[in-house]
Design a protein around this nucleic acid. Sequence first.
DNA 1: AGACAACTAGAACCATCGTACAATTACTTC
DNA 2: GAAGTAATTGTACGATGGTTCTAGTTGTCT
Lengths: 187, 187
Amino acid sequence: MGDEGTTTDGRRVRGQRRRAQIIEATLTVVRRDGAAGVTHRAVAKEAGITTSLTTYYFATLDDLLVAALTEVADTYTDHIRRIMDTSDDPVRDFAALVAASAGEGRERALAERELSTLAARRPALRPVARRWRERVADLARLRTSDPRAVEVFVAIAEGLCAAILLDEGRADPEHVRAVLERALVER
Amino acid sequence: MGDEGTTTDGRRVRGQRRRAQIIEATLTVVRRDGAAGVTHRAVAKEAGITTSLTTYYFATLDDLLVAALTEVADTYTDHIRRIMDTSDDPVRDFAALVAASAGEGRERALAERELSTLAARRPALRPVARRWRERVADLARLRTSDPRAVEVFVAIAEGLCAAILLDEGRADPEHVRAVLERALVER
DNA sequence: AGACAACTAGAACCATCGTACAATTACTTC
DNA sequence: GAAGTAATTGTACGATGGTTCTAGTTGTCT
């Protein structure tokens, strides 16, 4: 976040901050009004800039959504990686993350689901969404080497998240953890 | 499809066919263009009627989406119930249904996911979506009485469906079945 | 300082959409 | 067959939104 515009490699360095700012505003809009609420004007207003700027950095609305999903996926990846690197009980911390989809993290989780649903219709986005799931799989592999157990773990994580978003409120981290653990038991 | 308009109870019998026709057209649009593609005009065109008619039967666009989700949930419920009533191996047949999200049933599954995602933002729709999941739970209860196993089963079903929609193509019914069975093993 | 590209602002064009409304037709009831 | 209600049509208003265009500004390099 220090100085920018040093043009180390030639060009296109100056606008990176604006770009990030626009993506951030887009995510705010998605969290508040859903993916359907994303318009050039809404994003611009949220970012406090003019509409022309958003179209300057993202020629089409689709580009904007793509960038937003990519950003979300990256953030998620970072989060998972941090858990994997530092936690003494990754599954517990991951369960806490999933459980947070009920409370303060609800809007975030909703945004994730909407963007991910969007990805199903855009072949270009599927690799991004797949990488996402792959991170969860990585986490599961800390505990088991059984490919099927990993697959079950990932599926449960996704399913639990959906359940939490539809059933309002209640989401006990310990409960989520117990359900997730079920994928990992020896047999 | 026989005679209608007999007005057995007084009124509002004639228009039921139209109503169903409009909902059907709505689902066609959702399958083809996603929930975002649902507009009065698009639906009307799909149904071969005028725009005024769709607003006559569904005052607001929201009503239309609500009706569409309800219809989808009902169809799904019927399907599950039929499997439960007639199959000698419900989990196998259910696995086949899930696996079909990859091939010919892809558009249907996509529509289901989009509408279900929509439900997360509308409190009024959550009961509908929840009933949906409850049917899958019913099916699981044919095989186990362990509440946690049921919960795991439902979560896996949802997660597998999402995975199938994002990974293109491959979805072996036998594989899906094996993963689902994993929720039901004794321990 | 001058040239050149990146960046920003404002406005406008054109299409689409939700919705309302008045008018017309079909059907039911008495 | 007249009256009344449901169903249907055509049309239009107001608003929103994607995208384009033009002009002006800022920053960078030589």
